[in-house]
Amino acid sequence: MTATDEARRALERQQTVEITTIGRRSARPRRIETWRYLADGRYWLTGSPGTRDWYANIVAHPDFTLHLAGRDLRVRGRPVTSPEERSRVLGAIVPTLAWADSLESWLAGSPLVEIELDPDGQPD
């Protein structure tokens, strides 16, 4: 089984994940807990509308560490800014969240990042 296959299996089992990004200004590691979502057969990071440091860090430094059930994987974040793609992905995620505000508010103000698993990725 490849590292990518193992990462996908871990992501299937684990919605709450920790990520370590590199600070956009400090260049220091920043570790936080967040949720991953599945839509269109791919994995995403997002959150309720608002500014997020983790998002700004991924925009500045797309490579980050995804911490999954005892594994640390180097992955890449792809910020999603296309209105059409944001609408499709958030349109699949937001209706599944009982606590979420309107889809329109998420489209207007929520960060959205695709987790790109590196097929050659190795644990840190």
Rank of each mutant, 00 (worst) to 15 (best):
L97V: 13
Y37Q: 10
L112Q: 03
P29V: 07
I32Y: 06
P119K: 05
A100P: 12
T96L: 13
G23N: 08
R24E: 03
R42I: 00
I22F: 04
T46W: 12
S82A: 15
D72W: 13
T51N: 14
A7M: 15
R52M: 04
L73A: 09
G91K: 01
A100Q: 14
Q122I: 01
E18V: 03
A56S: 10
R36S: 13
L11G: 04
V80C: 02
G70I: 15
V17H: 11
R74P: 02
R52Y: 15
R28W: 10
R74D: 09
G91A: 02
L73T: 01
G91I: 07
R71H: 14
D40S: 10
P49Q: 10
Y43E: 02
S110L: 04
G109M: 10
W35D: 02
F64N: 02
E6F: 03
I58Y: 11
G109E: 11
R25W: 08
W106Y: 15
F64M: 05
R25K: 15
D120Q: 14
I22R: 13
R76W: 13
I115G: 01
P111Y: 13
R13W: 06
T81C: 02
I58P: 00
W54C: 03
D5H: 11
G41S: 12
D72R: 15
V94F: 08
V89K: 04
E6M: 08
A3K: 08
G121F: 12
L117M: 12
W54F: 12
A39N: 11
